[in-house]
C-alpha cells in the first residue's frame, strides 16, 4: 500500500532526539497505552496475524496516521480488525462506547 507509513526518505519531519533525552524513557506514559499494548498482545495470533495487523494500521487515512499517537494507531488497527473479522459489529461497539464504562468492568480494567 502506497501510504504515509512507507516513509523512508521523506524530508521535513525534524529532529529525532527528544529535548532533554538522557537515553531512557518510561515504557508507557499513560494507563491506556498499557491496556492497548496488552489488548494487542492477547488478540494477535488468536484472531489476526501480524501482517493483517500491519495492514490494518496502514489503512488509517494519512492525516490520522501522522497525527495520532502510536498506541492510538494500534487502537484503530485492532478495533478495525475486530469488526472486519466479525468479532464485534460497528453498531454494538458504538453502542457500548456511548453507554460509558460499566462499574464491574471498571474494576476489572484496574484503571488505578
Amino acid at each position: 500500500m502506497n501510504s504515509v507509513h512507507d516513509c523512508g526518505g521523506f524530508d521535513g519531519f525534524g529532529r529525532v532526539v527528544p529535548e532533554g533525552y538522557d537515553g531512557s524513557e518510561p515504557v508507557f506514559k499513560h494507563e491506556w497505552e498499557r491496556r492497548m499494548c496488552a489488548l494487542f498482545m492477547v488478540t494477535i495470533g488468536a484472531h489476526y496475524s501480524d501482517d493483517e495487523f500491519r495492514q490494518s494500521r496502514e489503512r488509517l487515512e494519512p492525516v490520522t496516521y501522522l497525527t495520532r499517537p502510536y498506541y492510538e494507531q494500534w487502537w484503530f488497527a485492532v478495533a478495525r480488525l475486530m469488526m472486519e473479522k466479525g468479532l464485534m459489529t460497528p453498531e454494538e461497539f458504538g453502542r457500548h462506547l456511548a453507554a460509558g464504562p460499566t462499574p464491574s468492568a471498571d474494576i476489572l480494567a484496574g484503571d488505578a
Binding site: 491496556r35 492510538e72 475486530m82 468479532l87 476489572l108 484503571d111
Partner: peptide, 21 residues
Amino acid sequence: EISARVKALEELLTQKGLIDP
C-alpha cells in the same frame, strides 16, 4: 478520548469472552 475508546474495547471483548483482563 482515547482512554475511553481503549476501555470500551477491552470491556466489550471481555464481555464477549474473547479476552481475560
